[in-house]
């Protein structure tokens, strides 16, 4: 173990000990602090001027960055969006603290954040020590599009960027309106979206992908599947007979092969060779979903919206 990390380990344990005895009697908000209720229902006291944010979830990093990327000081190794964020990681203006389930707590301690953004229940265990150390840990855990909008506005309020948050959301709404106006048509295309080839995994009822497919003018042939994603068999795909097949990421080889395979040939979309590919990033949970919608639309109808 190198010297700096030994020192910070000692600091951490001291703070943990201190935390053990001092917590449990949280005083009411000090001047310069505000209390917000997070998505898990915990009231969290947060400084009025938040300057150093650590995010343990790519979608939260993205939201912070859209509002004010400079204040994001720590993100995960999975963070990719927006572009500005990747740039800041390259320029070492943003520290990678590990992943959402294996964050380096000492690194977070060293960054000394005044706000830590986490996922929902699944990250509670990792964040307990951070809470003990007195860091404000705030859960943003949107379940659907309304939740994403709500959380984005809430984050805007916390960062004092309410105006910007509202503007960005309004832009998205306008963009969506415009897209809808341009693409107003009664026809919808039946789509099969495959996220993994072996076993064949597709998206179901509550997924972001389902929502995006729907907006783009597609009908997910497995929208009756009651989970985010699940395993299906070729026979089901034949039975639902999609007009279009969309493969996520690098399944080109697989898609090439199916043209020759018995069974697949029975499918309308395969016979007409209506097959597209899309990067998983366009189907992510984000307020910037419009790019994905447009891409899928182009795949479905062959026209740019």
């Amino acid at each position: 173990m190198s010297l700096p990390s030994r020192i910070s380990a000692a600091r951490v344990s001291a703070v943990i000990l201190f935390g053990l005895f001092s917590s449990g009697c949280a005083p009411s908000p000090q001047p310069g602090e505000r209390t917000f209720v997070d998505d898990l229902g915990y009231p969290v006291r947060i400084q009025r001027s938040v300057k150093r944010i650590v995010s343990l979830l790519p979608s939260n990093s993205e939201m912070v960055c859209l509002l004010d990327c400079e204040r994001l000081k720590g993100g995960t190794r999975y963070d990719r969006f927006p572009e500005e964020l990747t740039q800041r990681i390259k320029e070492k203006n943003l520290e990678v603290i590990g992943g959402g389930f294996d964050p380096n707590l000492e690194k977070i301690f060293e960054i000394g954040p005044d706000l830590i953004l986490v996922n929902g229940p699944s990250q509670q265990r990792v964040t307990l020590p951070l809470k003990r150390m007195g860091f404000p840990v705030f859960s943003l855990y949107p379940q659907d599009m309304d939740g994403i909008r709500r959380d984005f506005l809430l984050l805007g309020e916390i960062l004092d960027r309410e105006e910007k948050a509202r503007r960005l959301l309004a832009d998205v709404e306008t963009g969506l309106e415009e897209f809808r106006r341009k693409t107003r048509r009664s026809v919808k295309r039946r789509v099969y979206l495959q996220t993994w080839p072996d076993p064949m995994i597709t998206v179901g009822k509550n997924s972001m992908s389902q929502w995006i497919l729907d907006l783009a003018g597609g009908i997910n042939i497995f929208k009756d599947m009651p989970f985010d994603s699940g395993k299906v068999s070729l026979e089901w795909i034949i039975q639902r007979d999609p007009e279009v097949l969309i493969f996520v990421d690098s399944q080109r080889e697989f898609a090439e092969r199916i043209r020759e395979l018995p069974g697949w040939r029975e499918i309308n979309g395969v016979r007409k060779n209506h097959i597209c590919f899309i990067e998983a990033a366009y189907l992510r949970r984000t307020i910037q979903f419009l790019d994905g919608v447009k891409r899928i639309h182009q795949c479905l109808f062959g026209t740019v919206a």
């Binding site: 999975y78 993994w196 064949m200 995994i201 395993k231 299906v232 070729l234």
Partner: peptide
């Protein structure tokens, strides 16, 4: 693993779907 994890979990539980 990232995306592959789900496929791996299905392997651990076995099946004949493909």
């Amino acid at each position: 693993a990232e995306e592959e994890l789900k496929a791996l979990i299905f392997f651990f539980m076995g099946g004949f779907s493909s």
